[in-house]
Structures are given as C-alpha cells and as structure tokens.
C-alpha cells in the first residue's frame, strides 16, 4: 500500500468536515490497519512505523489499539489460513475433536503457523452455515461437514503444499 497516496481527508468520508483533525486521523486508524493487513497479510513493524508517521500518532498508540482486536496479526501467516468454527452448533457437533486432530497432524497450536508457512491454524466464531456443522474455512472457502472425506482432501492438499 502506498501510504503517501492516501488522502486522509477524503478517506474518512463526508463526516470529516465536522470533526477535528485529530479525530479524523484516529478514525482512520482501524480502516488503514485493515488495508495494510490486506496488502501484506499481517501488520509488519515497518508498515506500522510508516502509518505512525502518516497519522502523526505515536507507534505505541497504534500497537495499543491494534493489539486489542483479534483480527490483527503481528507475525506473517501461512499460505492457507485454516479456521475451525468454534460456534455453538459446530461445538455441539464435535468441532473440538476436529481441532485436536488438526493440531496433532500439523504440530501447530491455535494461532500458530507451520514452520514452512504452509498453513496457519485458527479458530473462528460461527461463520453462518451451522447447518453444515462442523465447519472449517480455508482462506475464503467454506468446507462443510468437515468430519468426513472433505477434511481428508483438505489435509492432503496442505501436505502436498508442504512437500
């Protein structure tokens, strides 16, 4: 993301005309963090430093806010982001066991990435297709009824990726 090209005044939307300069910059913090993460996959120290200059906000402030939210990451993440739904319906239909399986098979903890960066294992709240519980998402795709054959296919594709 080209930080210099972002026009803070237009980015905040029309409400910007009615709030002070500081509020404007602050109000952009979270949207810009999302943007950085979209581009780089995580919030690198270097990108945050540039953001801190751009928003004229101490780096510590930026870390303070970003670390509050679970969806911001400070370390690089795997090529496949595997999220096991831990929502109620999936829990009731055995998501816990599924998660244990994945952890053992790839030797990663929750929120961790395999050494070869093939995959990152995470959990997520209900993704909205409880009818298919238990559900796993892989990047943007949703894998339903993941207790079965579907899962094997996914695991194989990750293992292939690992080489």
């Amino acid at each position: 993301m080209d930080m210099d090209r972002i026009d803070l005044d237009s980015e905040i939307g029309r409400i910007g005309a009615h709030i002070g300069a500081q509020d404007r910059r602050r109000g952009l913090l979270i949207p810009l963090l999302h943007k950085i993460q979209e581009d780089y996959g995580y919030l690198s120290g270097e990108a945050l430093e540039r953001l801190s200059k751009k928003l004229e906000m101490p780096l510590s402030e930026i870390y303070s806010v970003a670390s509050f939210y679970h969806q911001f990451y400070f370390t690089p993440r795997g090529r496949k982001i595997v999220r096991v739904c831990m929502g109620t319906a999936c829990h009731v239909r055995g998501a816990g066991k599924l998660l244990d399986n994945l952890q053992q098979r790839f030797n990663v903890g929750i929120g961790e990435t395999t050494e070869d960066m093939a995959m990152t294992l995470e959990t997520v709240g209900c993704v909205g297709c409880c009818g298919l519980a238990p559900v796993i998402t892989v990047n943007e795709d949703i894998l339903g009824e993941a207790g079965s054959k579907n899962l094997e296919l996914l695991l194989e594709s990750i293992e292939e990726d690992q080489g």
Binding site: G13, I15, I30, P31, L33, Y69, H70, Q71, F72, G125
Partner: peptide, 9 residues
C-alpha cells in the same frame, strides 16, 4: 459509510 470491526465481540 461502512466501518468494519476487527474481531472483538
């Protein structure tokens, strides 16, 4: 305008 959350219930 739209504002996105960042994963905090």
């Amino acid at each position: 305008d739209i504002r996105e959350g960042a994963g905090a219930f």
